[in-house]
Design a protein around this nucleic acid. Structure first.
Lengths: 200, 200, 200, 200
DNA sequence: TGCTAACCGAGACGGTACGTCCTGTCTTCCC
DNA sequence: GGGAAGACAGGACGTACCGTCTCGGTTAGCA
């Protein structure tokens, strides 16, 4: 029995306004330049109203990310029946999003938020990258079922490689991943490197 | 002719003490909790002495990382002649280091430092992960030359996948990469997923 | 016709609890540390219930003082027929009360409350010190009628001097007024300073 | 040996600017409306620079008062040789100052500052009213020496009565003391009330 | 040997943001 | 309609750091 509700209920408007403000500010200025005061001010809300809901900047950002304010949800690979094409298309789309300034800002903000000591960064990554990872594994498994991909491979490792490479290129931002890079990565993962010739 | 050195030379003791202090503090408390004042205090140095050398916190951390205060330098893959074994060993060793608390702390600090708007994060990543990436590509190229790996694959993409997967698992830290995970990843990259059977 | 009472009548229990809480808190912590939230909490009452009755902290304190929660009411000088003794006794008693920690705390709280810009401090002082002042004047007038005190003196000025000296010693609290101080003050006011010898 | 001076010395300009700002703001808005942030802002100074010197609002106000920023120093009674006239003139002048809005504001601010739990209010009153009190006693003693005032009276009590009556009228501010009130008070103190006729 | 420049530790400076506390108002459910 | 509870916008609190500055005091090369 969850302690009967007493007093004025928390305003959903304020809740929403805070997350929206945080998302806008983090895209505009990056995580380091983001301040709780600015979030509250832009949301038209007292600071206490922010702190009543989240204990820290990183928690607000995490919630904004998880609730879809920072990134449009639903980026699972399609299933056209051709797993190779689906994989390629998904990776190209993801790379394109991360090549935009907004996408990169989100990823970098997430990495910074996750570095905060008091953030449940496992949960953050799990909820943010987890769906992609899981959807990738599912699509790959379907590809195996189709007979298009070989059985026995560790599909989780493949998803790690795909998500990890995207993340790495986005964070390092020497140069974001291009469509060609994406295709090359898919090619390697499909064809492998082994020539079958054993070492001497 | 670079303006002959005049006045008191900068103290190498102070230089070293600052980097050591920064490294210790970042491992102990994470990047977010790190402050320039604490670095200076722990190094027994005035703040100006820090700012005279580096313009920002992230620059100090970057230097600490690059100069081997945060991470033991020299982790290139060995060349035993067997590229598969070398790759596996390197990935296992890297995964093991990142599974330690210290290793994870360093990576997370680096990610946070790189998220600083005013950091040359490209340079940071390049200098930090670059050598590994380059060494991997070189070792892979040698493997191709040996005839052990097929020619024509985009080796940079392979290195991206390896480094990225490590990074992803370390940052997400749901569970750090195990030796088995490492082996599975190498296996996939070597053997590929493709059965050679085209889509319907 | 005074708008017939509608709805639930105001709780006298709450009223009383608020004043008692305010009195206790002001004695315990002084006026500056007193907060409306603490008053409401200690009274077991919602803040609105306080604000419904009084518009400000100083008003609550004023009411607490005036209603006898802060100071026992009824300290007028006695009338034994001997105005000198009565005056001395009254002043000694007042000085003794102000020498206690509680008494001093009340006076200091009152002074602070009266300093609030939006307090009707004239009313506060009038209601708090006014009765004493008036009773003193009355007792002095009776002394004049008795023939014990000379006519023609400005009795209000005498009362000002008595009340003012008490207040001053209490607020300054270098040392509260002693019985001897009280006697000396009465002595001066009765005997005067003038020798009757004019200035050169 | 007072610990050799190290680091940048504290700015006398800032010190002075803070006290001036505090004095202006307290006269303008009263003690309750005074904030540390406003003091710092008006002084063109960081808040820390205020807190580095004084621990609280009341301490700043106390210092401003004691250093003559709130009240022009030097209000001792003159010595024309005629103690009665001197006393009357002094009391009239003091009453006139307290009747002005500025004077009243200062006294009320002082009373409020002295009510702060953590203020050394004894020192505040002693240094603020003490000089007047002492000068009054001195002038009265000179009057005794002149033969104009009777010996044997407790001159401290007389000064208490004068200062106290002024303070009381200023704080209560039902009506500030007028010149006539001042004259009446001096008259009573000089002539006394006693008719010499004993009680029945 | 003395001059001058750049360094050194220390710590104050004007600022910004922090996270907490309180104000006076409001909104809910309950009597 | 009053009452207890508690959220609301607002704003001051006192603290912690930022990056800069100003002290007295080294420590070097150059005169």
């Amino acid at each position: 029995m969850p302690a009967k509700q007493r007093g004025r209920p928390r305003s959903p408007r304020a809740h929403e306004a805070i997350l929206r403000a945080a998302a806008e500010l983090v895209v505009a200025g990056g995580y380091e330049r983001l301040t709780m005061e600015a979030i509250a001010a832009r949301a038209g809300v007292g600071k206490q109203t922010v702190y009543r809901r989240w204990p820290s900047k990183s928690a607000v950002v995490a919630e904004a990310a998880l609730s879809g304010h920072l990134v449009p949800a639903g980026r699972e690979p399609a299933d056209t029946g051709d797993v190779v094409t689906d994989l390629r298309d998904w990776l190209r789309a993801a790379a394109a999003w991360l090549a935009e300034p907004g996408g990169a800002a989100v990823i970098r903000a997430l990495a910074a938020a996750a570095s905060d000591r008091d953030t449940d960064s496992a949960r953050l990554y799990e909820q943010f990258t987890g769906p992609f990872h899981a959807a990738l594994v599912a699509r790959l498994a379907a590809g195996v079922a189709e007979g298009r991909l070989r059985a026995g491979a560790e599909l989780g490792a493949v998803a790690d490689a795909l998500v990890g490479a995207l993340l790495y290129r986005a964070l390092a931002h020497t140069a974001p991943m291009t469509a060609d890079d994406a295709d090359a990565l898919v090619d390697v993962l499909l064809s492998g490197l082994d020539t079958g010739i054993p070492a001497d």
